[in-house]
Design a protein around this nucleic acid. Sequence first.
DNA 1: AAGCCGGGCAACCGCCATATC
DNA 2: GGATATGGCGGTTGCCCGGCT
Length: 363
Amino acid sequence: MGGKGRSPCCDKEKVKRGPWSPAEDLRLITFIQKNGHDNWRALPKRAGLLRCGKSCRLRWINYLRPDVKRGNFTIEEEESIIRLHEALGNKWSKIAAHFPGRTDNEIKNVWNTHLKKRLKRQNLPSSSSSSSSTTTTLLSGGKPSVGGGEELIEHQSAEETSMATHNKPHEPCSLTIQENPNHHDSPMELTNDPKELTGLTTSSSNVSSNESNGSSSSSQVVGMSRPGAEEQQMDDSNYFSGIFDFPFESDSYFWDMFNDFEPLQSNLVQVLHEADEANCQRSGLGQVENGKWLSYLESELGLEVTPTESEKNNQEILPKYATEQPIFPEAFDKMPNPTEADESMDYFNSNVAFATQQFLHSN
DNA sequence: AAGCCGGGCAACCGCCATATC
DNA sequence: GGATATGGCGGTTGCCCGGCT
């Protein structure tokens, strides 16, 4: 209603648009790792990215953020989305708040591409037009009618029961929706202790990593509340600490190199997340492992540098590539020039993803 | 094998809410 | 209190890819 005109967030003529390249991703990750993201508008310039601040924010939140959970939604998650949508309408961010690691964009996409059609097929009344007034009804003990939804609930997991108890379509007031003054993005309260929640949610990737595979992890988190995005952001810059400690100040050639790096392009986020999980599994050893990983990667790529004595001394602690031990710039000297790089890129391409995966799985 | 088509999803756009000056 | 800056949200678009003909 403010309706105030506002200047465009960026000069659309001068910003890059479209899909993000690996180099841009790495730049963004590296920058946030080092500096956080207290000012999205200024971030692109500071990070040397020709992107709109909003684009950076979106990319980070929806894709690069370390606790983003990728992969298909489980049945339990989908059922929960349906119920939450029934209660909240198209309040995707509020719905997403109930699914640690899931983004509003992702949930919105799932709804639009899968769930809406499924409900239609099942002849369920789509609540796409339901408004937030539904929430009011529920607050006062209203009953979300999920006609024909019984069969959807039948295969609810036991873990989800914590949510289902609030939520069974058979029961009145099945959803307890209440605004938490402390966490306005976390309307559903299954536990009231924010500290507890923080512990649960910041380790969402840990949950996955502690499973034999990620397949069952979601059921553990479905129904949990999640701290507000504000709190989440506080930790974001620490997630990658030491995982990818590239020299941010490196020249453009270094970054552009990743644009031709197809295996990395496809695997970058996965690799990052696996590295993160690997760190989580080895809490306390993360930095050492990161150093090993980078060394391994350098070795596989033929970029290893004979360490100086002081570097040797530091080696067992952590890589200080970024600020104090500029190993990469030395490695650049060993890199082929751009034309040679073109020829050797196949080698580069074919080895780094494999090397990364090998390292991750051999440790 | 080639073209078409539809689904899925990342990214963009524009509006709104809030913070700050 | 108004103007402006910024972040966040929801709707929408458009590209990519796989399946089908």
